[in-house]
Design a protein around this nucleic acid. Structure first.
Lengths: 333, 333
DNA sequence: CTGTTAGCGCTTTCAA
DNA sequence: TTGAAAGCGCTAACAG
């Protein structure tokens, strides 16, 4: 692998001159630039990015850390981040936190391989985030709150969104409403559950703990949880799934038992993933402003990088998307 | 930002000793290790990853370069790559080729920011790939063929897959069959079209060029192309969409005009994206082994990194997925 | 077991 | 306009 040294030698100039020429400085004569460029091409020279980053102590990249990296859920978020980053001549790279302590994500955070990070990965520990956040490595955390002046928190208003859709269920005449939860340690899940139970309480509806079943945000988990509920024999009027994936799993479980949605039971989800519109029946759910969350995240990173004073916490509004998975009991009963 | 020097000083040892201690070498006494670790913790020391990569001239990461980084399409592929990489203690990072020459992807390739790369990004130029591929930066290209011993080519058998599904259409009694193409410069599209027209030819069916309409692999493009076709008044018996996204766009166009699928026209897609199963009617299509493609890609990268002799080209088999978007004309006519 | 030291490849100051 | 040289922070060979 040719280095700048080789290029300089071949062009018959000093290393520094080669560096200037390669970086398009005006300090070097046309003729020299040409000679250097020619030498570089002949040697198929490629600069070593690490060396220059090291020298400049700046990477011009921001890292997006995801628990999964696959998952259709992240598309929109990524788009928001991507556009913001490239608009500022920053690079965006995505990496996975799979593997916890030993993951790529941890490495990026710890080893300052990026100038900032956006994290949506429940499997990365809060302590790592807190240790890593600093003025030259500002962090935006999307799925929890963190105690560190250089880590701010952006989240959609899970609680309010859950409250609204639960209220919608109630207004449609549903009284016994179950909750299929995400993993108990999930902050999002917790907030959604709070919104859900607040709505129940405010409407003087009791919450039966037998109707809260723990899932894990996956389709499979929703399927299993729903099966469990069906096995209890007494189905509630409606079901709140803590996310759409689980709701879709639930749909399948109901379908297998010949239970019709929404005729026999109404359901709602959360997220408004792309599939929600296509399943049968189309899912009533709450939409998260994912693109906006992504865009805001990068924006805040840049603000922090610029040393500006920023708010420590943001809540983005959700929107209820009414489709056809909820029956109006007041009309039909 | 504390450096290893600061840590060494604070612990009262030499830099190298600090380095050894930090990296868990056995050459250092327990007591020293402890002192160093303590100092590091007190200073909130984080090592600079670039510096060590630079020193070791090895990054232990492989880059996955995508044109988009969003797009549900990539999920499976990513999973295959991710698992292969982390299984070998390598990091995977994904980056986007959005922005062409000036993209993050180009930077990674050119500046040797990874030990190898997997590319699925039609908007990155072949010349960049050819210039970047070398023994210490092997590349797997998924969407074209490249002339470079260190860049190998893995693709699903687009031609055969297209051939099969076209033949399926023919066997079901369809005779005039249209083709909604992807972008003309797409290699995948080209291969699919070849398979399509070969099947026609082998069955002595003429191909009418008015029935080939150019789309762009997006839902919107499929929608527009379909509208165009509908405007021609004479609908063919069936339509081959070069990918599922476009087929779903087409479904919408037909729906708006009250044209029923498959009663009035049969359609097939390509890819078998997740949605294909959920649209109405469920789409008959060709499944690509995306996970396998991803897994094989990393595997080959490691082979090349190890200096082994490898095949320059791989073709992965596809599988036809029969659902309900094709009518059997022989039965009903 | 610990310390000295020579770079990795690059940028950039300073002097010529 | 060009060149010499000093590091960026780290690893590792070598010497003690």
């Amino acid at each position: 692998m040719a280095t700048i040294k080789d290029v300089a030698k071949r062009a018959g100039v000093a290393i520094s001159t080669a560096s200037y020429a390669l970086n398009g400085s005006t300090k070097v004569s046309e003729a020299t630039i040409e000679r250097v460029l020619k030498a570089a091409k002949e040697l198929n020279y490629q600069k070593n990015g690490f060396a220059s980053d090291l020298k400049r102590t700046k990477t011009n990249t921001i890292a997006l850390i995801l628990s999964d990296m696959s998952g259709p859920y992240f598309s929109e978020l990524i788009k928001g981040v991507q556009e913001g980053a490239s608009g500022n001549q920053y690079d965006l790279i995505a990496c996975s936190s799979l593997g916890g302590e030993r993951s790529t994500a941890t490495k990026f955070l710890r080893e300052k391989r990026a100038d900032g990070a956006i994290i949506l990965a429940n499997n990365i520990s809060t302590s790592i985030i807190e240790e890593s956040a600093r003025s030259d490595m500002p962090i935006v955390v999307l799925d929890r709150d963190v105690e560190n002046p250089f880590a701010i928190h952006i989240e959609v208003d899970n609680k309010k969104g859950a409250y609204e859709v639960t209220e919608y269920l109630i207004q449609n005449g549903h009284e016994t409403i179950g909750y299929i939860s995400g993993p108990p340690e999930s902050h999002d899940n917790e907030e959604r559950f709070k919104g859900f139970s607040d709505a129940l309480k405010d409407n003087n509806l009791p919450f039966q703990s037998r109707l809260k079943i723990t899932g894990d945000f996956t389709r499979e988990g929703g399927y299993r949880a729903t099966k469990l509920l069906i096995a209890q024999q007494k189905l509630p009027d409606a079901l709140f799934y803590a996310n759409d994936e689980m709701a879709i799993g639930g749909l399948q479980a109901f379908d297998e038992k010949g239970i019709r949605v929404p005729e026999d039971i109404s359901i709602v989800g959360f997220d408004d993933i792309q599939l929600a519109e296509y399943v049968s029946p189309p899912l009533t759910t709450v939409r998260q402003p994912k693109y906006e969350a992504g865009a805001l995240s990068v924006h805040m990173i840049f603000q922090m990088l610029a040393g500006e004073e920023v708010d420590r916490s943001f809540h983005l509004p959700t929107e209820m998307i009414v489709r056809q998975s909820v029956k109006n009991k007041k009309l039909s009963d």
